[in-house]
Design a protein around this nucleic acid. Sequence first.
DNA 1: ATTTGTTAAGAAAACGCTTACAAATATCAT
DNA 2: ATGATATTTGTAAGCGTTTTCTTAACAAAT
Lengths: 342, 342
Amino acid sequence: MRVTIKDVAKKCGFSITSVSLVLNNKENKIPESSRQIILDTAEEMGYRPNRLAVGLLKKKTKLLGLVIPDNSNMFFSELSKSVEVAARKRGYSLIYGNTSDVYSRDYEYLKLFVDHQVDGIVITKSSHLPEKDDIRNMEFLEKSGVPFVVVDRQPKGFKSNMVTVNNVTGGYLATRYLIEQGHSRIGCFTGPLGLTTSQQRLEGYKNALAESNIDFDESLVVEGNFSSGFESKAMTRFIDEKVTAIFCQNDIMAFGIYREANKFGIKIPADLSVVGYDNINLCDIVYPGLTTIHQPIDQIGEESVRILTNLIDTSEEVPVEVKELEPKLVVRSSVLINRGGK
Amino acid sequence: MRVTIKDVAKKCGFSITSVSLVLNNKENKIPESSRQIILDTAEEMGYRPNRLAVGLLKKKTKLLGLVIPDNSNMFFSELSKSVEVAARKRGYSLIYGNTSDVYSRDYEYLKLFVDHQVDGIVITKSSHLPEKDDIRNMEFLEKSGVPFVVVDRQPKGFKSNMVTVNNVTGGYLATRYLIEQGHSRIGCFTGPLGLTTSQQRLEGYKNALAESNIDFDESLVVEGNFSSGFESKAMTRFIDEKVTAIFCQNDIMAFGIYREANKFGIKIPADLSVVGYDNINLCDIVYPGLTTIHQPIDQIGEESVRILTNLIDTSEEVPVEVKELEPKLVVRSSVLINRGGK
DNA sequence: ATTTGTTAAGAAAACGCTTACAAATATCAT
DNA sequence: ATGATATTTGTAAGCGTTTTCTTAACAAAT
């Protein structure tokens, strides 16, 4: 049986009240002598407060819930780490739900978190969440009254607190850089086109092309899944289409392209230039270093938690906040510089 | 204000008891007519049970705590995913603490989890946890009475429920394979030597050498950190020592070696053979595919949770269980086959 | 001796829920 | 009608805390 405050009180002969007061450092003039006795017995008995009881009473758990689609995807594992760091800084702990991109679990975790009385929720939805479910989830959260922040992937047709990185800019930056280096036949290896994330990056790609008067060619776009499995198919297409550069919508897919290129004896960057997206740790470790679009992951975590705790701490209505962070290009060695000379 | 069972009861005119009974599907012959009314009002009001209250009363939270050192290390992010999957299968959710390898946080999270009344704890300790703290943590857990399982990294001088993969075997398999392919000057790029994990893999390396009558050479061993940062230093040494193959004690460090090799124009596997450890997803994506030691991550998660839930469910004393899983060699393309001919 | 003030410590309610038990009502045989 | 039994619903205790409100004790002031 776990030792309770009652046990401590009994053992040292003080009342529950006094023990509680002392243990919580309330300035309720318990004389130092009594204080010490209480502190010592609690320590000696290995007393630990029951957070369920406290939470029940105070209606605060200091717990945040995090829903992410796939923790074995480095972008998300780094993201969850950054949320965790930001949360701990403010005295919150994380309950964490990995949906493995099975979208029905988004809802399950949301319910679980609400049931556990978390003080706030950070959610990045699953890749293939149908719009209907997306809205259902958002409405559930709204109705539950638990503050929440949507991260990275925005829900369609629903306005809520949100932290994103400007994906249009990201796609644009990547593509423009390739164009600047002399490329004009540029493949685009996208994420699931059901995600606004992918669509926006594609939009940025188109914008950059348009700006340089390069016609958009549908057949240079290949849809992937933000993971591995489609690189082979993609590479075949890109070879057929004689692209000289590929904009991959995430780093993992870029690494897949690396492998395929190697298989075909295609040299990066000499024969083929590649730009990734995310700037995960591995970009530096791989050879040649992957030029990519950096997402400020730490900032995403920090901002999400900031908005969330702000929501939690202020009783008045807070206006919906949408924080859009800016991506930036990180140049390494996977793009052939100044192709064809200036 | 959140809607409680009381609110539901009031709204539909039944007692709290009846509502509770129906909502929990107890077979307490509430007539179907009443049942439906209750179910409908609860649904309509968006009632969600307060798990704090339930936990307080039942002394079960269906929550498991997980402490891991670094979620941005793929081995651990995959591990945490596997624990999560195994937990969910049995109706448990995960609270999750990432220590970022700051070892004082191991203890903090342990306390937090106990305070939150988790039903069980899975812990992989931080890389540089001093023995003193290690034992303190273990004793704390023991005293708390919360069932726990130690994963992967074993505490020194403490016997507890544990799931590991046989690291000696792993080191042996990697090294023997290199020897079989004709290598005899084999570098060993280790993890932090303060971890038994690293020491055991090194031991396996030595065993394989001894078996083939190759003298162990201290200068072929370079200590790393299971992450990146030491590859450059390591590579310099390995080149000086004219090794033809390197056994890296994890995959991330192997990728670092890939990069360094490329910098020096050294071809893998033609000029240098590399074996990794962990078999993270990336091994397949990288080129050349990394030959490595597979750790059965899914099994680790499954076994940990199995042992844990077994501990939770059985009231009698359960004998300490140490589950040692077997690693296996996964051959890809980073080792030159049959060097020097047969 | 009574009042007032000060200090120390305890009693009790409440948080939302489950569940053992009690009560009320309906059903039926006598 | 009487009691017995089955069916349905309600009462209340208790889980471990925090916190408001009392009480108790005693010294100082009138």
